[in-house]
Design a protein around this nucleic acid. Sequence first.
DNA 1: CGGAAGATCCACT
DNA 2: GTGGATCTTCCGA
Length: 211
Amino acid sequence: MAPPGETAATPLSPSFFAREPSRVARELLGQLLVRRLDATTIVARVVETEAYLGAEDRASHAWGGRRTGRNAALYLSPGTAYVYFIYGMHFCLNVVANDDGGGGAVLFRAAEVVAGHEEVRRRRGFADRQPRAGDLLGGPGRLCRGLGVDRDFDGKPFAGGALELVAAPPVPGAAVAAGPRIGIAYAGAAAAWPLRFALRGHSEVSRPRPG
DNA sequence: CGGAAGATCCACT
DNA sequence: GTGGATCTTCCGA
């Protein structure tokens, strides 16, 4: 048991991630991203995710079983971080999630700051002005910037280190909205698959809001 | 070896 | 709503 006044910090177990990516994406809503820095710890509650299925999913970096230097982490064990650089200026954070070794993963699209608010504001350039809804961690690039996540985390496990996923109470099914994923119009039929999950109506969820 | 496009964000009109 | 930033990655030739 945790001492009074503290939150029990139980990391999500490897078996949590060793399931279908869509299920993991859905159940990661409400869980906590914990980023330990030298002087501060940032805690952020996950409010939006997307599942990428792997070989059979044209939107996935593992489509057709592709293996490249960039996506090597997708083939490591479930629970490993996959971080890649995109559009010349942004990072995107994923966790490997699959039960078949096929490169499935979950992208973290948005989160809500629970602790370390000052640190996140500073990293996002809002030290001296008020952020509007969604400005801090609403979007995969913003989330990485605000949490200080970069390619150093690529291929590292979400466990016992500077970046962790910690269990929190599950969110009720009625609070979850599902819809098509963002920015993958090129992906043919897969573009319409409802693999984006978000807390219904949450202010940090990026647009367009699903459901 | 070159070119095109990208799981995005921000400022500006 | 539109376009520019900025650069890595990947595929085709």
